[in-house]
């Protein structure tokens, strides 16, 4: 049993404050973390590994050299090894180019029985890379997974949808993207962290994946970002103080009526 977990390094957004005038995030350059849902994916891989003798977990990331840190984080949390796809050729990739690189790396890591990933990353928030990797590997995919049961070589999976939960059965190899509900990852001990710091992380370039430069990065990406702008974030807020609750409630009732929702 070989489990590959896709992990991504993202900017920390949790405790960030907004610049109210510009509507942008205030954060320092060093605040990069492992994508929170990928922590859940790692924890789930490690949980499944514990059920199966001789299972191994490989964490796979694409990103700058600094993304080694998220692989070490994954190792501290129980992954056996990490592989980093890094180099200039990968830069500027959209989900199509990213999934091409990741799928090629997973093929190189074969045999692979299970691929796990966070449902989406907090930076791009597309949730597309997982299913695209699955398409390229011809694996079935289940997204928004909140429960995995391993039963005699078959995965019984529960995914969260808008109004409930769908239960699906898949036979590996398969790719699952997970949501936060699946488990509660515990931070690793200092000892494990120190051990993970010493882990060698191999870096694979395009030549290792037998991919041409024009299949990767911006050149291999069908989409182009043509404009980035600030949304209308700061609204014209009508504020009512503590002594004005009655008039505030009147205003709210007026709004509810005008909007036909009451």
């Amino acid at each position: 049993m070989h489990i590959v977990v896709l992990v991504k390094q993202v900017p920390a957004t949790d405790n960030v404050r907004l610049d109210p005038e510009k509507g942008i995030m205030i954060r320092g350059a060093k605040d990069n973390i492992i994508n929170p849902l990928d922590e859940n994916a790692v924890a789930e891989a490690v949980r499944i590994k514990a059920l199966l003798p001789e299972a191994t977990v490989t964490a796979l990331a694409m990103g700058p050299e600094a993304a080694r840190e998220v692989l070490r984080e994954a190792a501290a949390r129980g992954a056996d090894r990490g592989v980093l796809l890094s180099g200039r050729a990968y830069a500027g990739a959209d989900t199509i180019a990213t999934s091409r690189a990741l799928a090629a790396a997973i093929k190189k890591l074969s045999p692979v029985d299970l691929v796990l990933a966070g449902e989406r990353a907090t930076d791009g928030e597309t949730g597309q890379t997982g299913p695209m990797v699955a398409a390229r590997l011809d694996m079935p995919v289940v997204t928004y997974v909140r429960k995995v049961d391993w039963q005699d070589g078959v995965l019984q999976v529960e995914r969260i949808v808008e109004d409930g939960y769908e239960q699906v059965e898949v036979t590996p190899p398969a790719l699952l993207t997970v949501v936060k509900d699946i488990n509660k990852p515990r931070p690793p001990s200092l000892k494990r962290r120190l051990k993970a710091l010493k882990m060698e992380v191999p870096v694979w370039g395009p030549e290792d994946l037998a991919l041409a430069a024009n299949e990767l990065g911006l050149k291999g990406s069908p989409t182009r970002v043509v404009k980035v702008f600030s949304p209308r974030l700061v609204r014209q807020t009508r504020m009512f103080g503590e002594n004005e609750t009655t008039s505030a409630i009147d205003e709210l009732l007026r709004q509810l009526t005008a909007r036909n929702v009451v």
Binding site: S99, Q128, P131, M132, A135, T143, V161, P222, T223
Partner: peptide
């Protein structure tokens, strides 16, 4: 951009090798 659309369409886009923008 629902739990089904966000799963089905990326699969199709990868097979068609074309661009897809989410949400």
């Amino acid at each position: 951009a629902t739990t089904s659309g966000r799963t089905v369409v990326p699969l199709a886009a990868a097979r068609l090798e074309t661009g897809l923008t989410a949400d």
